[in-house]
Design a protein around this nucleic acid. Structure first.
Lengths: 218, 218
DNA sequence: CGGCACTCGTCAGCAATTTGTCAGTGAATG
DNA sequence: CATTCACTGACAAATTGCTGACGAGTGCCG
């Protein structure tokens, strides 16, 4: 999963990024409203976390522009405590959720999970397919009911494929969502990752469509 | 997908072309502003990537001429880093996105994908005709409801024909679309491709109009 | 501090698939 | 009936994906 965090305060941004990475999301930062607007408009994210008090362009304006341009990406806005009018405006502008500052990082994570899951059209925080199931709340993976250990990157891969199950996910998209596109890594890294994950999950769970990408069947 | 790349620096052009081809886009190069203008004005592309610093005619001028002539093709401009006024001018002139140089090729690809998706962003993602259906979002092809596997080139061919179903698509247009017309490949390559695809889809699905081209009936 | 385990990217060789080419066959057209 | 255009099977080249091995980096523990 790939998240855009629009937050100008470096300390806050850093701590959120750390939490997101730990939770298995590739996170990118936009430090002002202008950068946020452009990136949200031109790149693909699974979720955008938007602070309303941004330099250059106000967060609310950014959000309105995205929606006006038809962008559907779920947006969670961060507001100052008690800034009621702002919240209402945010919801009206098309935000999917909001969280008043200051907040517990855990709460942010919970809302993020909920939004991602809602966007993917799942009701439950548990992703399943055939013999494997992933509990996104506890970050646990089970094969035939028994828990197995996967590495952080493997976890990202399997959750992304499960969120998009039955869809052939292009290799380039996977690389985006696993690493974030700041990162120029060889496509072979992904292949190696797939091989390792297959050893743990069984060879049939992740299928290849040569020339297209990978997918997990329902 | 067919992309026009207007870039005069051979080394940069080559690396971009390589990346585009890898991503499955047929790519054509225009090495100066004049060629870019002419081709963009007379041929059909799904996207144009335009460097602003072109010989003969400046990229911005080219863009303005296209827009003045009513051409809607999405345009992504490449600017020198920090060239702020240029960017603003570019946006005002009708560019759909810009990317400052130097950039990571991955980032360019991400933006290209976003633009193409946005341009295509309407209509059902499922193409159908008779016994075959193609789910473009999942990138899967089904015959009588059962999935069949097709190669990347076969996939491009079948989707193109389905997008234009009931119309006889000239061979030259198909070759353009599949290979890009720089590429001098025997017309026989297409015939061989059609034969292979027919073996998978059934002989009647793709019909021939001798001397003209191929088509799929509603 | 040193060693051990683990993760993960890179490399290289192998295997499988895709795709272009060629040549011969077949079918339509006038 | 001759000619042109399209089809197809066989082959070879190119491409793409898989995997084992290696090693750099990191964190943990005694």
């Amino acid at each position: 999963m790939r998240i855009l965090l629009a937050e100008d305060e470096p300390a806050i941004a850093a701590s959120i990024v750390a939490a997101f990475e730990r939770a298995g999301y590739a996170t990118e930062i936009a430090a002002d409203g202008e950068a946020a607007w452009f990136r949200g408009d031109t790149e693909e994210f699974d979720l955008i976390v938007l602070d309303l008090g941004l330099p250059k362009i106000d967060g609310l304006t950014v959000l309105k522009r995205w929606r006006a341009a038809g962008r559907q990406t779920p947006v969670l806005i961060l507001t100052a405590r008690g800034a009621w009018p702002e919240r209402v405006e945010g919801i009206d502008a098309g935000a999917d959720d909001y969280l008043p500052k200051p907040f517990q990082i855990e709460e942010l994570l919970a809302r993020v999970r909920a939004l991602i899951r809602r966007a993917a059209g799942h009701g439950s925080p548990v992703l399943e397919s055939g013999v494997i199931s992933v509990d996104t709340r506890h970050m646990r993976v089970a094969l035939n009911g028994a828990e197995i250990q996967v590495s952080p990157l493997e976890y990202r891969l399997i959750t992304y494929l499960l969120h998009h199950k039955q869809r052939v996910v292009p290799v380039s998209e996977l690389i985006d969502h696993l690493y974030g596109n700041d990162d120029a890594r060889g496509a072979n890294a992904l292949e190696a990752l797939v091989t390792r994950l297959r050893r743990k999950l069984g060879a049939e769970t992740i299928q290849t469509r040569r020339g297209f990408g990978y997918f997990i069947d329902g």
